[in-house]
Amino acid sequence: MKKIGVVGGGSWGTALAKVLCENGHEVKVWLRDKAQCEDVRKTKINKKYLPNVILPNDLYFSNDLDDVIKNSEIILNAIPTQKIREVLKKIPKEYMANKIVINSAKGIELNTHCLISEIMASECKDIKYCALSGPSHAEEVVLMLPTAITVACDDLEVAKIVQDLFMTTYLRVYTNKDVRGVELGGALKNIIALGAGISDGVGYGDNAKAALMTRGIVEITRLGESLGADIATFGGLSGIGDLIATCTSKHSRNRNAGYLIGQGYTKSEAIKKVGMVVEGITTTYAAYELAKQNSISMPIVEAMHSILECNEDVKKTVIKLMLRDKKDE
Rank of each mutant, 00 (worst) to 15 (best):
K83C: 03
F61W: 12
I75Q: 14
L55Y: 11
Q82H: 12
Y60V: 09
F61L: 08
I79F: 01
I102C: 10
K47V: 00
K89T: 05
G107C: 06
E94Q: 13
R85D: 10
N71S: 08
V101D: 14
Y60L: 05
N71R: 13
P80V: 02
I75F: 13
N52I: 01
P56N: 12
I91W: 14
Y95G: 01
I102G: 11
N103C: 06
E86G: 02
I74A: 05
T81M: 00
D66K: 10
D58Q: 15
K99E: 09
Y60D: 14
L65S: 08
I69C: 15
R85H: 10
P56K: 14
F61N: 10
D58M: 03
I100D: 14
K93C: 00
N103L: 03
S72W: 01
I79K: 01
Q82E: 08
E94F: 05
V87D: 01
S104Y: 11
I54N: 15
A78K: 12
K106A: 06
N57A: 00
G107S: 08
V87L: 01
A105Q: 04
I75E: 06
D64N: 15
Y49S: 05
V53R: 15
K47T: 02
L88F: 14
T81C: 09
Q82M: 10
A97F: 10
S62L: 07
R85I: 02
L76K: 11
I75T: 14
N103G: 03
I100L: 03
L55C: 06
K90V: 06
G107I: 04
L88M: 13
G107D: 11
L50K: 10
P92N: 06
N57H: 13
L65D: 13
E73P: 05
P56Y: 08
I54L: 08
I102Q: 13
K93H: 13
V101Q: 07
I102W: 09
A78T: 07
A78H: 12
N52H: 13
S72M: 02
P51H: 00
L59I: 03
I74H: 07
S62E: 15
I84P: 05
D64H: 12
S62G: 11
F61Q: 11
P51C: 00
K93W: 09
K90W: 10
E73D: 13
I74L: 05
E94C: 02
A97I: 08
V53N: 10
D66R: 05
N71T: 03
K106C: 08
E86L: 02
I75D: 14
